[in-house]
């Protein structure tokens, strides 16, 4: 059964499965250890906060699969018993930053972005989103122990209806401990007043929509030993390292598809139902313009409806005025009515033709040409339903091709029938 239709085939809202949209996707990292030449790095560990720290050093080497920490580890299968970690170069410290960029391949409605760290969590970082495939970026969330200083934003600002589409800065999740295994999880709708009525909130629907996610690590946590003499071992201990980057959400299809598929070009697109079209089912498919496109809701599927052109036209367009006049029922206007029909639904015969009532209006030959006599008729246009031509004085017949009773034919084409004396 198709989730987009109930048993009798009535359309209903449907949404794709909730997935980790980052899984298996390529992540571009602005810095990866050992990428150019093998490098040393050291891992700090301590039983718990305040206990003495121990430092063990290793080599990061891109040419050795056992020692490499590529960005691919961010979105590979996350095995807690065998963590694979991407790792940046050492001590890329503010004002320098390290960026991770992930393209989702299409618009997604993002529910959360999470990062599981192999290193201490950053002192400051920002999660951005793009809605135009990386052309422009919008902040999603700021994290910092010093929101005002680092990002000129208040810490934990209250979110109101007026600013629900703005990123907030918070000092939560910025503790340096645990030194490994810390998690940052950003929930896009957390604390947003309209979240409970998401269906009717275009603002939040827009807010959670993203085609790309970018994480910018802005400042490393340190123990303050990075500037001491012989600081090299210390600096070799400060880097960003993440084992798992997740982007939880659904392929955005506006309620008109239950899954996303790869199209011929290999791009991810919605498998649109309800006569909708486009990668996000965000418009009506051709010839289905009898009412404006709308997102589906829990109560109403808002499927697109075909124009009614009585099989006489292949194209139509939407007219808002007609739609309103019809009580928001029908606004389609057929284009290029064929078979000698006319009207917004190609439902009557055009001038010079009349209805053949022995055939339905949808029949190709529903309209017959008027057959008005070149001399007896006063014009070539006949009555739409009877085919009666306009006759000159004294002339009779549907086609005005004979004189009326009491009249006889004359020699004048102007007055073809004259009264019998």
């Amino acid at each position: 059964p198709d989730p987009c239709y109930d048993e009798p085939g009535t359309p209903r809202r449907c949404i794709p499965d909730f997935v980790n949209a980052a899984f298996g996707k390529e992540v571009r990292a602005s810095s990866t250890c050992g990428h150019k030449t093998p490098s040393r790095f050291c891992v700090l560990s301590s039983a718990d906060k305040g206990a003495e720290r121990t430092r063990t050093c290793h080599t990061c080497d891109a040419s050795d699969p056992r020692k490499y920490h590529p960005p691919a580890y961010l979105t590979d299968l996350n095995n807690p018993h065998n963590l694979t970690c991407w790792q940046s170069e050492n001590f890329v410290q503010f004002p320098q930053n390290v960026t991770l960029t992930l393209s989702l391949g299409k618009k997604f409605e993002v529910t959360y972005v999470s990062l599981q760290f192999c290193s201490p969590r950053p002192e400051s970082m920002v999660i951005y989103k793009s809605m135009d495939y990386g052309k422009t970026w919008v902040p999603f969330q700021f994290y910092s122990t010093q929101c005002r200083k680092m990002y000129n934003k208040p810490n934990r600002a209250v979110i109101t209806k007026q600013n629900e589409q703005e990123a907030v800065c918070t000092d939560s999740h910025t503790d340096m401990h645990p030194l490994s295994g810390g998690l940052i999880a950003f929930s896009t709708l957390d604390g947003r007043p309209s979240a409970h009525d998401f269906d009717n909130s275009p603002v939040l629907q827009d807010w959670v929509t993203a085609t790309d996610i970018k994480v910018v690590f802005g400042r490393l946590h340190t123990f303050g030993d990075e500037n001491e003499d012989d600081s090299e071992p210390a600096r070799d201990s400060y880097f960003y390292s993440v084992s798992d980057l997740q982007v939880g959400g659904r392929c955005k299809c506006n309620g008109h598809a239950s899954r996303c598929v790869k199209d011929r070009e290999g791009s991810l697109v919605c498998d649109c139902k309800h006569n909708t079209a486009g990668p996000e089912c965000d418009r009506c498919k051709p010839f289905h313009y009898d009412r404006p496109w709308q997102r589906a809701t829990a109560r109403e599927a808002n499927e697109c409806v075909a124009c009614n052109c009585n099989l006489h036209a292949r194209r139509c367009r939407f007219n808002m005025e007609l739609y309103k006049l019809s009580g928001r029922k029908s606004g389609g206007v057929c284009l290029n009515c064929r078979h000698n029909t006319a009207g917004r639904h190609c439902h009557y015969c055009k001038e010079g033709f009349y209805r053949d009532l022995s055939k339905p209006i949808s029949h190709r030959k529903a309209c017959k040409a008027c057959d008005c006599h070149p001399v007896g008729a006063a014009g070539k246009t006949c009555n739409q339903t009877t085919g009666q031509c306009p006759c000159k004085d004294g002339v009779a017949g549907v086609m005005c091709n004979r004189c009326a009773k009491g009249y006889q034919q004359s020699r004048s084409p102007i007055a073809p029938c004259i009264k019998i004396p």
Partner: peptide, 24 residues
């Protein structure tokens, strides 16, 4: 009683050449 159809050959088209149907 059905009246005969108009006979195009009977009409005098002098002065009405422009009205004369092509096939007459």
């Amino acid at each position: 009683e059905v009246m005969p159809t108009l006979d195009m050959a009977l009409f005098d088209w002098t002065d009405y050449e422009d009205m004369k149907p092509v096939d007459t």
